[in-house]
């Protein structure tokens, strides 16, 4: 009885693992989009069309901390951040529509905008 339960749980763990791998691949190969949202505390601070943006660098303050954001050659990244882990800096250029750049300490998310909104606009 106990043994069969263990086997069941091993299978469950394997399923979780495979689901994770499938999901990761899906996220990694999701296509790029041209519009980018910069979101802080759940509010969209700005929406940028990367292909039309000039190369520039700007600072987003957040309390005592801040993130330096760079736009270059139609790409966007967090160049520098005043947070302990700097995960957002290490993420590098935004490349997948499913995987945003995230700075948890500063509650900052940079992601490609949903294309659904645009489709709706065209349909209307």
């Amino acid at each position: 009885m106990k043994k069969s339960k263990t086997t069941l749980l091993i299978v469950a763990a394997a399923v979780i693992f495979l689901a994770g791998i499938t999901g990761s691949l899906f996220v990694l190969f999701a296509p790029k989009q041209s519009a980018v949202n910069i979101i802080q505390d759940g509010k969209t601070l700005m929406t940028l069309r990367l292909s039309e943006e000039k190369d520039r660098t700007f600072v987003l303050p957040y309390g005592d901390s801040s993130n330096t954001i760079e736009i270059k050659d139609g790409r966007i990244r967090v160049k520098d951040a005043q947070c302990p882990d700097k995960t957002c800096v290490h993420t590098g250029w935004l490349s997948s529509s499913a995987m945003p750049i995230v700075c948890l300490p500063n509650h900052l998310v940079i992601s490609f905008a949903d294309s659904e909104g645009e489709v709706d606009a065209v349909a209307e």
Binding site: F17, S24, A98, H107
Partner: peptide, 23 residues
């Protein structure tokens, strides 16, 4: 917790990676 704090559901995109790394 991260989604609740940042109020941003896009964070769930990281969940598959977390599942693999968690395993």
């Amino acid at each position: 917790a991260a989604v609740a704090v940042t109020q941003t559901a896009q964070l769930f995109a990281y969940y598959p990676f977390l599942l693999v790394s968690g395993c």
